[in-house]
């Protein structure tokens, strides 16, 4: 695990970048819901679209496309994979 300095919320990741999910800062229900949809710890996330303010489109597990509201993307902590 890299130190905390390399962690950032998913909302800061730019389109085209790929990151790894470190943890979800939310309740048990949110964590479980996101895991059911394919966003579990350690999963590789490619940001397809997204800009300041609006929802983001993510690619996970190759072929799953998820759209997440800006509110949740603040709660998903990620790290750049090359820093691990």
């Amino acid at each position: 695990m890299p130190d905390d300095a390399h962690f950032m919320p998913l909302s800061m990741v730019r389109p085209g970048q790929t990151v790894e999910l470190v943890r979800i800062e939310g309740g048990h229900k949110l964590r479980k819901r996101l895991a059911d949809l394919g966003l579990n710890q350690g999963v590789s996330i490619r940001v397809m679209q997204g800009d300041a303010g609006g929802p983001m489109i993510l690619a996970v597990k190759g072929d799953t496309r998820l759209a997440l509201g800006r509110g949740i993307t603040h709660k998903i902590i990620v790290a750049a994979p090359q820093q691990r």
């Binding site: 998820l66 759209a67 997440l68 509201g69 509110g71 949740i72």
Partner: peptide, 11 residues
């Protein structure tokens, strides 16, 4: 509190 927005985009 605003509920989180998560939706799958089917092909």
């Amino acid at each position: 509190t605003a509920a989180p927005f998560v939706i799958e985009l089917p092909p």
